Amino acid sequence: MSLNSIFQYFVPKDKKFFPLFEQAGTNLIDMAKLLKECVNSSDPETRTALYKKLEDLEHVGDNITHQIHLELGRNFITPFDREDIHALASSLDDVADFIHTASSRIELYKLEGATLPMIEITDLILEATEHIAKAMYELKDLKNIRNITDSCVRINSVENKADYIFDKAVADLFENEKDAISLIKQKEVLSAMEDATDKCEDVANVLESILVKNA
């Protein structure tokens, strides 16, 4: 191994990890936007096309996560704890997985039309991913804690709103929906959407842990 290679091994790799986290955040916004289009579309062919695009972006997210894990194995020095980098990458990947799951259930169950609660939770998913992306951009400057903390607070608020909408929607389904199959389909789609907001909150929790350690 050359002297230059040894030197590069010990140089902090801020230029490696932070761009990948920013890419992951941007990818989540793109996925959330496609999910919103899918939910607001009543045309089956359009929904199928959107689902396929969303599935492609889910694979993009997987590749970003894989690249982060590779960089962890390659680099001795990291911008913050290795465990936190791994946890953050995994939590971002979970958000992508559940956004994809929500679109997958819409496609597989051939949902005829989205309900108002589905539309509302989808809007909240998009809002949460926007806050995540903002936090990922701010992450490269851990001195600017206020902005990241603000994003975390807003993500938690979004998740609380989604919980309320989900609980009320499920209660209304049991009260008013007479078709058992339709009830199950709607509940499963709503559940995946609400899970996506839960995973957004997990990202916020990891970020808060990073801030505490690096304050």
Rank of each mutant, 00 (worst) to 15 (best):
M1T: 07
S2M: 05
I6F: 07
F7M: 14
F7V: 14
V11N: 05
V11L: 13
K13W: 02
K13T: 12
K15T: 07
F18H: 03
F18C: 04
F18A: 03
P19N: 06
L20R: 12
F21E: 11
E22M: 14
E22A: 07
Q23T: 13
A24Q: 11
G25A: 08
T26C: 04
T26Y: 14
M31K: 12
K33Y: 13
L34T: 06
K36S: 14
K36L: 12
E37V: 03
N40L: 14
S41A: 01
S42K: 15
T46I: 09
R47N: 11
A49C: 05
L50D: 01
Y51G: 11
K52P: 02
K53N: 13
L54Y: 05
E55W: 02
E55G: 01
E55S: 11
D56A: 07
L57C: 05
L57T: 06
H59G: 00
V60Q: 12
G61Y: 10
T65A: 15
H69I: 12
H69K: 10
L70N: 13
L70W: 06
G73W: 03
G73M: 05
R74I: 08
N75L: 12
N75P: 04
F76C: 07
I77D: 04
I77N: 09
T78P: 09
F80A: 02
R82T: 09
I85M: 10
H86L: 14
A89E: 02
A89C: 08
S90T: 08
L92D: 02
D93R: 03
F98M: 12
F98T: 08
F98A: 03
H100S: 11
S104T: 13
R105F: 11
I106S: 12
E107S: 12
L108R: 01
K110P: 00
G113F: 04
A114L: 00
T115E: 02
P117D: 07
M118N: 01
E120P: 01
T122R: 01
D123M: 06
L126E: 14
E127Y: 00
A128H: 03
E130M: 08
E130D: 04
I132V: 15
K134W: 06
A135D: 01
E138R: 08
L139V: 10
K140P: 05
K140H: 14
K140E: 15
D141T: 06
L142K: 03
N144R: 12
N144I: 00
N144F: 02
N147R: 15
S151A: 15
C152E: 02
C152T: 09
C152D: 01
C152P: 11
V153L: 06
V153F: 05
A162D: 10
A162H: 10
I165C: 11
I165Q: 09
K168Q: 14
K168V: 14
A169K: 03
V170T: 02
V170F: 01
A171R: 09
D172H: 02
D172S: 07
L173R: 03
F174T: 08
E175R: 05
N176W: 06
N176E: 15
N176F: 13
K178I: 06
K178R: 11
L183P: 07
Q186H: 07
K187P: 05
V189W: 06
L190M: 12
L190K: 09
S191R: 06
S191K: 04
E194F: 07
A196T: 14
D198I: 01
K199I: 00
K199L: 01
K199P: 04
D202S: 13
V203G: 03
L207W: 03
I210F: 06
I210P: 05
I210N: 07
L211H: 02
V212Q: 05
A215F: 13
A215H: 13
